[in-house]
Design a binder for these strands. Sequence first.
RNA 1: GCCCACAUAGCUCAGUAGGUAGAGUACUUGCAUGGUAAGCAAGAGGUCACCGGUUCAAUUCCGGUUGUGGGCUCCA
Length: 637
Amino acid sequence: MEMISITLPDGSVKKHEKGSTVYDITKDISKGLAREAVGAVVNEDIRGMQEEVNEDSTFRVVKFEDKEGKEIFWHTSAHIMALAVQNLFPDVKFAIGPAIDNGFYYDFDTEHRFTPKDLEKIEDEMKRIAKEAHVLERFTMERDEALEYFKERDEKYKVDLIENFPEDEEISFYKLGEFTDLCAGPHLYDTKKVKAIKLLSIAGAYWRGDENNEMLQRIYGTTYEKKKDLEEYLHRLEEAEKRDHRKLGRELDLFSMQEEGPGFPFFHPKGMIVRNELEDYWKEEHRKRGYDEIKTPLILNEKLWHESGHWDHYKENMYLTKIDDEDYAIKPMNCPGSILVYKSKLHSYRDLPLRWGELGLVHRHELSGALHGLMRVRSFTQDDAHLYTLPSQIKDELVKTIELADDMYKVFGFKYHIELSTRPENSMGSEEQWEMATNGLIEALEEKEIDYIVNEGDGAFYGPKIDFQLEDAIGRTWQCGTIQLDFQMPERFDISYVDKDNERKRPVMIHRTIFGSMERFMGILIEHYAGKFPVWLAPVQATILPISDKFNDYAYELQKKLKDKGIRVEVDSRSEKVGYKIREARLQRVPYILVIGEKEIENNLVSVNKRDHGDQGQMKTEEFVDMVLEEIKNKRQ
RNA sequence: GCCCACAUAGCUCAGUAGGUAGAGUACUUGCAUGGUAAGCAAGAGGUCACCGGUUCAAUUCCGGUUGUGGGCUCCA
């Protein structure tokens, strides 16, 4: 192992493995010194003044602002937390403690149950440690030696980790005060840069993420170089909470969850307006692109689910029932229903591709702990469609579907990323079929020149898939659209078309959704807009506020007039001052507020107050109508 | 399902060292009739999630159930 020495301003020499990253080497040319500070890959000795140091020759400076810099910073923070926990709770055993998107966590195993009070104590201890500016020391051991080291200390998780490392690898350690951890690094040079510390929550987590393993206690936290940055981050979290779809769903009276139906959402009148607008848009867009629509039953005979493979692969998630002593199941997916429609008659190759959409209500028994507002429910409507294609049409249809998804997301201004999921362990079909299907998806993605992440083993049991991941208010991503290529169902159900040569052949099936589910999509949409729906989706598009009771009659006349034009209008005729009513309408995120009094009535005017823009002055009623209708037509905002 | 926490008025929350509860807001009524983010007053509203236990007495303490929140696992 080649070591590099860095001579620090005080003359002390620090050794690093060649190519390893140390956090922050900055050159202070004014003092003629190179000193070790924030994050660098070291490739040659640095001593005193090293002005010629640059990207290729010696080191790369990594700053907190860089992704890599944050990782290093938070990784060291995790070690600081571990040391603090060790100081306060000496019996603790350590699992793993990585950096994550907005901070870090460490998994601990201890009899003691951490409480929020403990978090404060740990936080204080961390601050103390950080201030002491401990230097992190890296060293290595042979595998056997390392195993012995952790066995002696009864650190079974570390032992487990090392045992799963490749045989001949040398094991690296980082020592921070009294805490020595198995760790690949890199780390900060010392702890003094960690100035702002906040521990956020305690959670359970399985060792190695496997539910058959023991449950550890995980502490999440985040740290920054400056107090101000931490405060900003916490402020952002608070702001995000304000747009939580569960909170807005209640405040805007869109939907509710009831104890009587955990995971089964109730849609209120206003929520139904949004939902129906979305569905209308969906239907229109699909009609344009050559889709037809079908509707299949919610409850179907159990035999069907045996045939489809759901019984073997999905039974735990299915709700079962009995009719006339026969076993039935409530559908968890729409595909078997669609296939029965396909099978109801003979198809010619000339008919393909068939594109059948179905807004299909499915029920799935999700684990109680997994439920989350509208994002994860037990009954939801998929904006499903099944395409029956000739093998030669697959790629073209996949490309068209990707385009459809992209076009529709654009209307809402969504950013998304795509993930490709490959064959899972418990799945049907031959290796060859899976390879063909997976390659089909990859080809389509490559044709569109789209970047994607690969999730090995995450596909559906009948085929690989690409997923469209959309973000919620706090950056959690949710799978919405999905495109799944399926060679299995057609075979299982023995569906066919009659080809040119009069032979019966097997079509290929594409399962796909764009919104994913109406429920989840609405949840994301509420957070995306923070409740401020664009006019075409807004449950109430305008509220009429008469200045005094005297003008109520006129207000209702005006409401009727606007309603007849197709605008969703409410009248706030309560005996309150304008200011009060404006406030209410603002809180409801109504796009347009129309104030009317004597002046407006006399001249057929409305005083328009626009959401986020305030008082717009007066305009002719007809002018207002045209403006709103135009905005509805254009959808995009 | 697992770990931890929580559950009081429609909503947001206070409270009771064990003696059946309170604010703000929303709601109803009355006064006020108003010009761009909260007028004034009164009234109504609660088996303190549910089931057990301890106790003379439980919303409060203990156990369980259900639900919710944050994670883990799983997923549209």
